[in-house]
Design a protein around this nucleic acid. Structure first.
Length: 671
DNA sequence: ACGATGACTTGTGGAAATACGG
DNA sequence: CCGTATTTCCACAAGTCATCGT
């Protein structure tokens, strides 16, 4: 794979530039060479401090754009200087060509190492303060009572704490569910003293209402606090954020994503979760593993406590971890998406998706052939891949029964999840999908498919029960193995990323109108975004206040229309007045009215666009695709091309997360 | 081959912050 | 300035996928 990257570069010292590209205060030799595995080339090239992957624009104008493309490990590069007619005199073009990658994969990628850079600056180094623990349990005041069978009962501290978890949730739907109640009660009993266990036999005889009221009032009181008090509380959280919320990586201060340990509580599984209501235990320092550099200052555990373990594993990216007691899975403390480490991975993800673009036609014709394969396994794989590609379905790992809610993805689809219709609404070979996907979100879709697919599905379903696997010879593991053979780094989820991003790009091309004003362009963007969200099934329930707020908006539009009418009338009057008197004053008046009319009309237009957008968006959630599936460079390029300020599309957090893309993309970026 | 485990990404709901209209 | 609507942020659950031991 050879990519051509170009950077404008002021040749500076002519003699030097024959052999070296001197940028900033460092130089790189011309010619071909390997990119060192553990060094960040971009820094040397542009002369910002070691380890920074977000080179500052001001270091040297115009040269930051492509450095990201040079960063893959083991990548081979060629640097050369050429004159270029589009540059000012004296400038040369620094061309950077990526040559075919030699070793495909480095064994284990170290995220940091103990190293001193030439000038004594420490980098590749991880140091942090450790996690922030949830505050301990504060017993209820004596006047807040728990009643059993109508009788007040003072609970032991342990039992009381768990009771408050339930009491707090009393107005939540969860507490009406039988499984939730059952799980809660079972786990609550484990925290009770012998006597309590003897007394408390039935959940329905428990009265948590005073506890509920206590916490409700407490919450209200907090909301009603005077301004200064609120400010004080805020400052305290800021202090905690300052102390625990950042770490040092590669000599840079990086924001941590979730530096707080999850507090104890009742497990809130989604959908029909068999474990909902179970007690999520309090995590102590003795449960926590710390990960940092060997020569970093090891974080202090809270007084009187010890860490479970301190390790120095630079092949992983987490800072701390613990095992959670509901599913027995590990929870991690990791960096914020704005960090260099996460940003680089994000960028890699989209680069993989872009590589798929160049082979996807080939892959598609391959799976079409495989529909006719003699091997059943191959056929199933080919049909599943077709769904993953066409419908952007998730891979669908198998799940342990009874441990989680019953949800499926592509490979785990069961016979009961699809219906075949040889003909429906004038279309042939329609497949109706109806199943619960991730987070128990329903996927419902009627899709006309190719005849071969239809025939295959029919065969896969023969002699099977509704709860049998549709693709009985297939799982995600062997599907992904196959995909890996088709393209390095290809897995099922890459199709989702690829199809989402390419859809955005195509839709933007189709929908954007150069002459439109900014508001209309944003509507076009949202429409393109919406097409992706629809593809990925990112639905949302109709917001509760939707009807009301829609009415409000309509009322505003009506009012504005009236204003416009009024303004028009006034303008007419002013015009007539000016015609009659022809004075400076009347002229000014007329122009003022004219401006006013224009302003109002623009406002009206904006409101109308807003209404359209809102209406079309009522059942669709745009956030997930924007954050996880759409290559931000497409958006940045679009914004630049059509003069839409990036702030109109990405809010502050999003701009931080996509800093890498904002920095390196120009308007002709193609996904 | 296969199941368990570990690490990491993706997804939703609700709280907190902010914008907005009166 | 206040109360409400909307947006943003955060917590944490639920996926994907690679690797490892048997």
């Amino acid at each position: 794979m050879v990519g051509m990257l170009q950077t404008a570069y002021d040749g500076g010292n002519a003699a030097d530039s024959l052999h070296h590209a001197v940028i900033g205060h460092r130089s790189a030799p011309l010619g071909s060479w390997n990119l060192p595995r553990d060094r960040c080339l971009s820094c040397e090239l542009i002369g910002c401090f070691p380890g920074s992957l977000f080179p500052r624009r001001e270091v040297i104008a115009g040269c930051c754009r492509h450095v990201w493309d040079m960063l893959s490990n083991g990548c081979r590069l060629r640097l050369a200087l050429r004159p270029c007619c589009t540059l000012p005199p004296g400038w040369r073009l620094l061309t950077v060509t990526t040559l075919p990658v030699q070793s495909r994969k480095p064994a284990v990628r170290p995220w940091w190492e103990e190293k001193n850079y030439e000038d004594g600056v420490k980098w590749k180094f991880l140091e942090h303060r450790g996690p922030y623990f949830a505050p301990g349990y504060e017993p209820l005041p004596d006047d807040v009572r728990f009643l059993y069978d109508g009788e007040p009962m003072k609970l032991s501290l342990e039992a009381e704490e768990v009771a408050t978890f339930y009491g707090k949730m009393l107005d939540h739907e969860y507490t009406t569910k039988e499984i939730f109640q059952k799980n809660f009660f079972t786990d609550w009993k484990t925290q009770m003293s012998k006597e309590e266990k003897k007394t408390i036999k039935q959940l329905y005889k428990c009265d948590f209402s005073e506890i509920h009221k206590y916490f409700y009032d407490k919450n209200e009181a907090r909301k009603a606090l005077p301004k200064e008090e609120k400010q004080k509380l805020k400052e305290e959280t800021n202090k905690i954020q300052e102390e625990y919320g950042y770490c040092t990586l590669d000599g840079h201060r990086e924001k941590i994503g979730n530096f707080k340990i999850e507090p104890p509580g009742l497990f809130r599984g989604r959908g029909d979760h068999p474990k909902m209501g179970m007690l999520k235990l309090r995590i102590r320092p003795e449960d926590v593993i710390i990960n940092c550099s060997k020569d970093a200052k090891i974080p202090e555990p809270p007084p009187g406590h010890k860490w479970k373990e301190v390790r120095f594993d630079n092949a992983v990216t987490w800072l701390a971890s613990w095992t959670e007691n509901i599913q027995g899975s590990i929870k991690y403390i990791m960096l914020n998406p704005s960090s260099k480490l996460k940003g680089e991975k994000d960028w890699q993800k989209y680069e993989t998706a872009r590589r798929l673009k160049s082979v996807v036609t080939q892959i598609r014709s391959q799976y079409r052939l495989d529909w006719k394969s003699r091997e059943m396994k191959k056929r199933q794989r080919a049909v599943a891949l077709y769904f993953i590609d066409k419908l952007a379905l998730r891979a669908g790992n198998e799940k342990e029964e009874g441990e989680t809610a019953d949800t499926v993805g592509c490979c785990s689809l069961r016979v009961e999840h699809i219906q075949l219709y040889p003909e429906m609404d004038g279309q042939h070979y329609v497949v109706e999908f109806d199943f619960l996907g991730k987070d128990s979100i329903r996927y419902y879709n009627k899709v006309p498919v190719e005849k071969e697919v239809f025939k295959n599905l029919k065969r896969f379903m023969e002699n099977k029960n509704p709860d049998d696997d549709l693709f009985d010879r297939l799982n995600t593991s062997n599907l992904n193995k196959h995909l890996q053979d088709l393209m390095d780094g290809l897995t099922a989820k890459v199709f989702r990323t690829y199809n989402a991003s390419i859809t955005l790009q195509d839709q933007l091309k189709a929908l954007t109108n150069e002459e439109d004003n900014v508001a209309a362009k944003i509507l076009s963007y949202n429409r393109a975004n919406r097409a992706v969200a629809l593809l990925c099934n990112h639905q949302r329930a109709l917001p509760k206040t939707f009807e009301k707020s829609m009415q409000n908006l309509q009322a505003k539009i009506d009012a504005k229309e009236l204003q416009v009418k009024e303004a028009k009338k006034e303008l007419k009057k002013a015009k007539a007045d000016h015609k009659a008197k022809n004075l400076d004053r009347t002229k000014k008046e007329m122009e003022k009215k004219k401006k006013q009319r224009e302003r109002l009309e623009e406002q009206l237009m904006k409101l109308k666009l807003q209404a359209t957008d809102k209406e079309e968006n009522k059942q669709v959630a745009l956030g997930t695709s924007k954050l996880n599936y759409l290559d931000p460079r497409i958006t940045v390029a679009w914004c630049k091309k059509y003069g839409v300020p990036i702030e109109k599309i990405y809010n502050k957090t999003q701009r931080e997360k996509f800093a890498w893309a904002i920095d390196m993309t120009n308007e002709d970026f193609e996904f």
